[in-house]
Every structure is written in structure tokens, then in C-alpha cells.
Design a protein around this nucleic acid. Structure first.
Lengths: 141, 141
DNA sequence: CCGTATCCATTCCGATACTG
DNA sequence: CAGTATCGGAATGGATACGG
């Protein structure tokens, strides 16, 4: 049977994995957040085969994470920039980064003041909430 | 060439994708957070082939996300439970869930008070920080 | 019930060559 | 530079059969 597409799964986590659930997509997004826009920039940064990159870029465009805009330098090519939806993946990226660093040495700073910023769970009234104090009431999670 | 392992990549995002960057691993983790522990529970919930599940469980154990413990019911089998490290993936799961729901209808509640909880960026002194106010100063991101 | 083993189809990925 | 085309090998996934 064909590999099940998660795109229409009831669980939002599963749906999100459509964009995050392969080796390269999130790394492309990471590079996009780092300001990369051109095919060659992604290709050299990631060391991915060009045909694979082509497919991934197309998929991210189809998912509405990236959009193609005419190159700023007047060349005949496209640049790939994050959409509003794509920028929403920032929290996912930060969560992955924090976890990969064991919760301590991940460097995320507020531009204006240069102070460290962290990802946290907060209740509606702004109180900090611990990982073990919450329950997931999401569909099929 | 062999598929590049991200395990030793300089970027923490890339390293985390070793655990999150395939179709099934994060869904297994999601189910583990939902209280599932047994091979068959995962298998029926995910509809994944048993051989693939075996491989994924082994990988998550090897990565220190899950650990095997003797079954509570005295059967000869194992149960798979989240380690401390594995529980750290909760923020990643929440980030994916929030994104999949377009930032609104994701249900995460504080157990004690039943109030909604959200994932946010906060500066060291507790101020809420917007997505566009921060910069990533992480290696290779 | 909990896996392991095997087989086969599909997909993914990397390398290379090629085009404009 | 920015892709497209093609190829082969590796990994992934599904189905099923089997054994503890």
C-alpha cells in the first residue's frame, strides 16, 4: 500500500509532520530563518543533492511554508522566502534546538536588548507552567 | 554515499531531527505522552507495520528517548516509557501541535486549574517576546 | 500478545551529466 | 547559477508468516 499521507490526519501533530517529518525540510526552514533565500545557498549549506532540494522546495511551497519571489538582483531565477505560515514554524525550530542542547546552551536572544529568550509554557494569566503540570486535550494525541 | 547521519551535526536542530525527522518517531513519542506503553498499543494506534515499529522503538531507546521496563502486568514483555530526556520532547510536540492548528484551537490545559496553556517566548525577566523580536545565535542556524 | 524474519514495492537519496 | 534528467543503491514501509 502507498505510504499514508499525514496531511489529513485528525491530529495536528501528525499534520505538522508533513512539513517537519523528513530529513531535509526542517533544515531548509532553519536556513530560511537564517536568511538564506537562493537555491544555491541552501544547496551548499545543506550539502543535499540538487534534485532532492528541488523536490523539498517544491513541497514546502505547496504546503505554504515558503513562497517564490523574483530574485532581487534581477536575475532570471527565484528566491524562496518564508510565508507568514512558515514563520510560525519558528517555535518548532526553537523547541528542537532547545532539546538538542539539553535545555541549557541554546542561544536565542532578544534583538533589542540582547537578553536571552527561552521557550516556556504559560497559562492564560501569564504564570509559568511546568512540563508535568499540563495535559494534552488535543484530538488523537 | 550513505545517508548523512545528523547525530553529530554542529547544529542542535539537526541533531534533534535524528529523533524527530522521520514519519513515525514523533508519533510514537506523542502516543507515549498519551500514556501508551505497549508494543501493541503503539501498533494499533499508528497502523504502522510491526517490523517498522520494532526498528523505531529500538532507535528511540538507543537515543535515550524511551526506556524499556518490565511489563507491569507480570507478562514476559517490555513496556516503553519516556525517559527524562524523552519528556523534554514535550515542547517540540506542543510546538508542532500549535502550528498544525494554526495557533488557535490547540487544547493544552493546566491540570490543576483546567485553564488553557500556551507555548511562548519569554525573556529572562519573564516578559513576553514576539516571534519577530528574537534572533537565533545558535551554531550553524 | 509480543515481537522477529522475510519478501516485495515504493520512496529517498546521492552522484553525475546536461541544459539555459 | 539554477535547475532538470536519469541512474543505482539504500532505506522505508506494508503484508504476511512464524515462534516464544
Amino acid at each position: 500500500m502507498k505510504h499514508k499521507s499525514l496531511e489529513n490526519d485528525a491530529c495536528p501533530v501528525a499534520r505538522s509532520l508533513e512539513a517537519a517529518g523528513d530529513t531535509w525540510s526542517m533544515l531548509v526552514v532553519r536556513d530560511a530563518f537564517a536568511g538564506k533565500r537562493r537555491f544555491g545557498e541552501f544547496q551548499r549549506s545543506l550539502g543535499v543533492a540538487k534534485n532532492i532540494l528541488t523536490v523539498r522546495l517544491r513541497k514546502l511551497v505547496a504546503l505554504g511554508v515558503l513562497e517564490q519571489v523574483p530574485a532581487a538582483d534581477g536575475s532570471a531565477y527565484q528566491e524562496y522566502v518564508l510565508t507568514e505560515k512558515g514563520r510560525g514554524l519558528f517555535l518548532v525550530l526553537v523547541a528542537l534546538g532547545q532539546w538538542g542542547c539539553g535545555e541549557s546552551e541554546f542561544k536565542l536572544v532578544e534583538r533589542k536588548r540582547g537578553k536571552a529568550v527561552r521557550l516556556e509554557l504559560r497559562s492564560e494569566d501569564g504564570r509559568k507552567v511546568g512540563l508535568d503540570e499540563v495535559s494534552l486535550a488535543s484530538p488523537r494525541a
